[in-house]
Amino acid sequence: MNILVCISKTPDTTAKISFKSDDTEYNSDGVTFIMNPYDEWYALVRALEITEQNGGSVTVINVGPASNDIVIRKALAIGASDAVRVDIDAPDSYVVASNIAAHAKSKTYDLIFLGKETIDYNGSEVGAMVAELLDLPYASYVTKLDINGNQATVTRELEGGEEVSQIDGSFVLSAAKGLAEQRIPNMKGIMMAKSKPLNVVAPIQADARVHVAKYTVPPAKAGVKMIDPDNMDELVRLLHEEAKVI
C-alpha cells in the first residue's frame, strides 16, 4: 500500500502576526514555522501505522519554496520513506491542489492523506480540490480509519455527531484529531532523514483564482470590566442591558 501525505508549513501558533507591503502580505520576519499539526500528528502518523501493518511506503509532498525543506526533513525523520517538493510559493489553494494532483497522477498511490485544514488560513479547501481533480471519493474530518483488504471503514466528524462509512478502492482523506497519536522523531530517525530522497520537481502551469486584497488586524478589546464576585446580579444586568446578549 503506497500512501501520499500532503504536508504544509504554518507559523507557530504563538507567533506574532504582522503584515507588510501596505497590508497585502504576511510578514514572516522572525516567525518560527512548524509542520501543520493535522498533517504531522494525525495524517502522517496514521499513514505510517498503516504501512507498518500492511507494508508499502509513505511519500510526503509539499508545494512550496526551498525554505520548506525543514518541515519535509521532519516528516522524513518521523518515518516517511521519501519526499517530493514542488518548487513554487503557491499563491492559492487551487495552485497547491493542482500541483499535488499532477504529481499523484504521475504515480500510483492507493491513498492520499491531508490534514483537515491548515491552521493559518483554515481553508479546508485543498483536500476536496485534489479529490475532484483525481475523480476520487473524499472522506473528510476522519477521526478513525481501518483498512481491511481493499475496503476502508472511516469515521467522519460532523457537527454534533459522526458518520461511519465504507469506501472501496483509492480515496482522499483529511485527518482530524483522534486519528492517531503524535510521534516525536528520535535521534536515529533524524540521522536517517538526512539520506532519504527529497525530490524537487518543477510546478505545472496553474493560475491563482483568488488573492488577498488586504489584511486587517481587529481592533483591541476596549478593556475588561471587572465584576465583584459577590455581585453576580450586576453581571447578569450588564449582559442584558449593556452587551445585549441575554
Binding site: A97, N122, S124, G127, S140, Y141, L158
Partner: peptide
C-alpha cells in the same frame, strides 16, 4: 461552512472553474 459543505466547496470550485473562499 460545515463538514459536508467544506467537503464539497473545493470539489465544486474545480468542476465550475470557480474561485473558492471558505469560511
Amino acid at each position: 461552512h460545515t463538514a459536508n459543505g467544506k467537503s464539497m466547496a473545493g470539489r465544486l470550485a474545480i468542476r465550475l472553474n470557480a474561485g473558492c473562499i471558505s469560511g
